[in-house]
Amino acid sequence: MTAPPESQSQSHWFLLGMRGIFSLPAIILMLSFVGFAAFTAEAKVPVEQVMFMTGMVWALPAKVILVGSMLSGAHIATAFLAVTLSSVRMMPMVAALIPEIRDRRTPTWLLLIVSHFVAITAWVFAMEKVRDVPRGGRVAFFAGFGVTLTLTNIVLVGLVYGAVSEFPPIVSGCLFFLTPVYFLTSIWISARHRVIYWALGIGLALGTIFAVVAPEYDILLAGVVGGTAAWWGERALRRREAAR
């Protein structure tokens, strides 16, 4: 090969990221979006608006809350507050991803654009795969995956919207359940550090507890309290092991 490795690699890694559309996580997310299309069709939200919010908001839980607010006729400020509370989790997710993908020369404006494509699926996929990509190609790899995944799902929602309102309940139930089961297996597989297992276990338990005792802030509380407890406990054990 005669092309200089740097100029060749950016499009190469972008294309390799695009190929992630044929991966298990991408397919599961697409099935979840079929479920979301069914939900919005049932709620009679026009398909153009469903496609618009798929591209603009992207995170699925935030969109479910947004549609719920639109249906209940909530004031725009109330809707903003509900959606923004569910999206606070984007901050630590993006903050954990950025040190993994940037190199010293990556401009911040590029990271700001690329961050739009972070949602749980893309995050889990990237945290798992990006270690196999050389540092210089990681932003391109993530962008290739994220942009393709988002555009594909915008088109998918538009295509299936008219067809999916009449699903048998078993099918829609199983479509819904794919998402949590997939997230569980992916986080377990992609964990490179003991603290991830601890955070997963504590987060599952606290997520359930806080959903009952503090339903408005459950995700946020479970994340901050559970994550801090997992980190603190794991670090204490690590120090004790090191002292031995």
Binding site: A95, T179, L184, I187, V195, G203, I219, A222
Partner: peptide, 28 residues
């Protein structure tokens, strides 16, 4: 600090998973 951020992000996603399983919407 990154270790802590990773733990918080993972616990947040875990809480979303728990809610989807324990308190699902729709058919389930």
């Amino acid at each position: 600090v990154l270790n802590w951020v990773r733990a918080v992000a993972t616990a947040l996603v875990a809480a979303v998973i728990a809610k989807l399983i324990v308190f699902p919407t729709g058919t389930l």
